[in-house]
């Protein structure tokens, strides 16, 4: 019945197009799923099976012990698997916590407390979004090194600032929150700080949460910035890359694949739980705003 309703009022041409689109997207999805399943299947093989048998062969014995062994085997620069996870956590939690919160506050002040200064600032943000004059990672590294912010969790100090994307999202979000809440709180005797923290921020906490989750996923997966700025504090993504690069001839690949599978669990779980929230909250409005 659902299929019948879907094709109701559609011409033959439309149906053909929908079928083609369905097939194309299905092939794309199946190829992705096949690769992930192959990776999972490989993680359950022994090293001999992986090396000697056909890559299409299923595991003869499902060696789940590979997952436990991943915690022992994968060690990079003195950090074991737990250590790599810990580094990923402080990097992937700390960075969005700082940047999303700062973006939220800056956007709140710009939208709710307009003045010549905030208008100039907003125009500056829009201009700088287009102009990508950059001294690059070399200058950033050298400057951070002078401030002793490299090769340590103090790198997060350099993250104090907004991101343009989050700032624009929050600008749109704050425009949608009525000033009546502020008026009512003011009448009740609240000061500006109370109004912001206890009345207004709760109005956009969903947006904050969605952006935090998206950014958490981005920083959890980032492997290049840790390599440059804190190479002796490798994250899980960096560690997995460097482990395979350094040990290429002697890596127990099934155990390595088990490590890869473990590393994707947090982000998949987060996305599956919050996918509707993320998709509902994220939209980009006009750049002229």
């Amino acid at each position: 019945m659902k299929t019948k309703n879907f094709f109701r009022r559609k011409t033959t041409g439309q149906i053909i197009v929908y079928v083609i689109a369905f097939v194309v997207m299905l092939v794309q999805c199946l190829s992705l799923i096949f690769c992930l399943l192959w990776g999972f299947s490989s993680s359950l093989k022994t090293q001999e099976e992986f090396s000697l048998n056909s890559p299409l062969a299923f595991p003869q014995q499902w060696v789940f012990a590979n997952y436990a062994e991943a915690f022992d085997m994968l060690e990079v620069r003195g950090f074991n698997f737990f250590g790599l996870i810990c580094n990923s956590i402080w990097y992937a939690v700390g960075t969005p916590l700082i940047q999303i919160t700062v973006s939220m506050i800056i956007a709140y002040v710009v939208i709710k407390y307009p003045s010549k200064f905030t208008k100039v600032y907003h125009a500056y943000v829009l201009v700088m979004m287009m102009i990508n004059l950059s001294a690059g990672s070399a200058a950033t590294y050298r400057f951070f090194a002078k401030l002793n912010l490299v090769d340590s969790p103090l790198f997060l100090v350099g993250k104090i600032g907004k991101t343009t994307f989050a700032y624009l999202i929050f600008c749109a979000a704050w425009r949608g929150v009525a000033n009546d809440y502020m008026e009512a709180a003011k009448i009740d005797g609240a000061n500006h700080w109370t109004i912001m923290f206890r009345v207004m921020i709760p109005q956009v906490i969903g947006t904050w949460g969605a952006l935090f989750i998206m950014d958490f996923i981005t920083w959890w997966n980032d492997y290049t910035s840790p390599m440059i700025y804190f190479p002796n504090w490798p994250t899980l993504a960096t560690g997995l890359f460097e482990y395979e690069s350094d040990m290429i001839m002697s890596v127990n690949m099934p155990v390595y694949f088990a490590g890869l599978m473990i590393s994707m669990v947090p982000v998949i779980v987060l996305f599956m739980i919050f996918q509707d929230t993320i998709m509902d909250r994220i939209s980009i409005g006009g750049i002229k705003g």
Partner: peptide
């Protein structure tokens, strides 16, 4: 189903998909 799977490469660590590929 498509919405989730097509977005998976965006949320999975690049090292995973690249290694498998």
């Amino acid at each position: 189903f498509f919405r989730i799977v097509l977005y998976l490469p965006n949320i999975l660590p690049g090292i995973i998909i690249a290694t498998i590929f």
